[in-house]
């Protein structure tokens, strides 16, 4: 069999369909928390799952393309600093998924903790470092404003991912069947 180079077909499709789902969730399924203007972001949970299953390249691309397309469609302009930050988040979760084996069908308590620690780090890096710095460098926005926005986003995303991201990974792993395990029962 010939060796295939570059992104595999499955990864390409994962990016394509993963992005489509990301955008739909972003647009339609945001849960208001009760606090003004803050919503639990379900798309971020989907992103964690895709990154955990398909790895950092797919995770990063889904976040980057999904966020950019969504910006373009919903706001008419692309806010590049946040798009890049989302991409960074996807890559980091993908790396964590690869090292922690988050999608191999055996999601232990240890892995749950590992996943949540890494999502904490990924969210902080993305929304409290990359996004505000990007805002300052690219858009020359005032630091006080962008760091406050960054802090709020970090908090919301960490909580959303802790609840929904973990739930989705738990359910996904539960349905992954182990080798030679399916048989008819009386």
């Amino acid at each position: 069999m010939e060796k295939k180079k570059g992104l595999s077909t499955r990864s390409v499709v994962a990016v394509g369909i993963g992005t489509a789902v990301f955008i739909i969730l972003f647009k339609f399924l945001a849960i208001p928390t009760g606090i003004a203007n803050t919503q639990i972001n379900v798309a971020q949970a989907w992103l964690s799952l895709v990154a955990a299953i398909f790895g950092p390249v797919v995770g990063g691309l889904v976040a980057f393309i999904g966020h950019a397309l969504n910006d373009a469609i919903s706001y008419g302009s692309i806010w590049w600093s946040w798009v890049i930050a989302d991409g960074v988040f996807g890559v980091l979760i993908g790396i964590a998924g690869k090292y922690l084996h988050l999608a191999d069908g055996n999601f232990t308590t240890k892995k749950i903790i590992g996943f949540n620690l890494s999502q904490l780090v990924a969210n902080v890096v993305a929304w409290l470092v990359v996004a505000p710095l990007g805002d300052i460098l690219i858009y020359s926005e005032p630091a006080a404003k962008v760091f406050t926005q960054g802090a709020v986003s970090t908090l919301v995303n960490v909580i959303s991912t802790a609840i929904l991201g973990t739930a989705v990974l738990v359910i996904y792993n539960r349905t992954k069947v182990k080798k030679n395990s399916l048989e008819h029962e009386a």
Binding site: R174, T175, K176, V177, L182, H184, E185, A186
Partner: peptide, 10 residues
């Protein structure tokens, strides 16, 4: 019935 404990996606 014999597949009651299978994951739905199989």
């Amino acid at each position: 019935y014999t597949m009651r404990n299978w994951p739905t996606d199989s």
